[in-house]
Amino acid sequence: MDKPVNDELGFSDIIEPLIKGWRTLALAILIGSISGVVIYFMSGKYYLATSNFIPTVTASSSLGDLAGVAKIAGLKVPEQEGGLSPILFPKLVNNVEVRLKLAELPLILSTGDTSTFRDYIVNVYEPSVLGKVAKLPKKLKSLIVPSRESESIDLSFIKLSDEDFMVISELEERINILTEQEDGAVTIAVEMPEAILAAQMAKHVEAMLQQAIVDYKTTEISNEYEYIVSTLEKKKKEFEEAQEELSLFADRNLIITSNTAKIEFERLESNLRIKERIYDQILNEKELTELDLNKSIPQFVVIKPVIIPYEKASPSGMLYLIFFGTFGLLVGSIIVMAPFFKKFVGYSKSTE
């Protein structure tokens, strides 16, 4: 005879079905744990290499050379007007051209062979079972949609091939760049199946990002410097021509007797002085601009250099076991308690 069901649930009412259904709970936990172990071995294992640095610019603050030290100490240093916000740093290496260049940089595999990221992903790397399943829709799509070959449309545009898109997608999945707005610190994290490859790719990304920051910070003043240098060359040539013209005139007129010759000599001499002043002024401006250019070049304070990771970064097997075992316990509890809750709900409706 069934035990009467009370209007209110007590602790014993909940525990009793769980105790009676312990075999179901044990089976659910076992199935969940086994599923976790299987999924763990089917999933990809990756090594994580990181780098952390702070870009500092001498001219970016009234603190001068102490700006970088102040940032490291946690003090907020005002950004130079027109400067590049740290939030935009990742965008400097996220464009297609940079990604394609990054894919062609050399890598030394654990076997000692030399390769590139593109060659490694296309010809060497073997994804995990779950990785293959995740990429199955893309492969099915490639069978339906004709493949695209890389071809030049005109002098300004390039049509990317399916392989290019695949390589760029792999780079986006494996490279992560984080920045802190307050101190401008940049953290680069790269995941790769091999530890040595993770470290090399992190170093490549670090170098490309730092060069991109330097180029951005110095573009305007570099253009100004190049213009001054080209102008200086022209003025130097004009100054030397004025010197030569005055010398030739003086050699032809060792004794100046006529007023015409005297006036011509004074004119050439005056023209030489003007050319000399202009040349000296531009030369001085070149030296000042060169100094400003050197000041504007960011210096990078490396907080954490790239090192070859020792341990795998992907979740451990124990975490998979605990998670899926707990999930199995939850599913088993629902199965065991379902009849009781159904009976309780039915009794409550009958007493209304």
Rank of each mutant, 00 (worst) to 15 (best):
T289P: 07
D215Y: 04
I221K: 07
V205I: 06
S222E: 15
L272W: 11
G184N: 00
E226F: 07
E233A: 13
A189G: 08
L288H: 11
E245G: 05
Q281C: 11
S296T: 12
I256Q: 04
K304T: 12
E233F: 09
K236Y: 03
M201T: 07
D215V: 10
D215H: 08
L291D: 11
F249T: 11
Y216M: 07
E238Q: 11
I213E: 02
A198C: 03
Q299P: 11
I213V: 05
F300I: 09
E276P: 11
E244T: 09
P305C: 00
F265C: 06
E287I: 15
I303N: 04
I263N: 08
A212Q: 13
P298A: 13
E290V: 02
V190C: 03
T219K: 09
N223V: 11
E180C: 00
V190L: 00
A199G: 09
F249Y: 12
Q243S: 14
V214G: 05
E220Y: 13
Y216N: 14
R277V: 15
E287W: 10
I278G: 07
R267P: 10
L232K: 02
Y225P: 05
E285L: 13
I297D: 05
E182N: 02
V301R: 09
V302Y: 02
N253S: 09
Y279M: 13
L254E: 08
V205L: 00
I297L: 07
I255L: 08
I196D: 06
P193S: 04
D251H: 02
M201W: 01
E287P: 15
A250R: 07
M201N: 01
A212E: 11
E226L: 06
E245F: 08
L293C: 09
M201Y: 02
M208N: 06
E194S: 05
T257K: 15
R277I: 15
I256M: 06
N294M: 10
Q181I: 01
T187H: 00
N294Q: 12
K286I: 09
I228Q: 10
D215Q: 14
Q243W: 04
A195V: 03
E241R: 01
Y279N: 11
V229F: 12
V301L: 07
Q200E: 03
E226G: 08
E266C: 05
E238T: 11
K203F: 02
E240A: 13
Q243E: 14
E226M: 06
E269I: 15
F265Y: 09
S230N: 15
T219N: 09
F239E: 00
D292S: 14
Q299T: 13
K237Q: 15
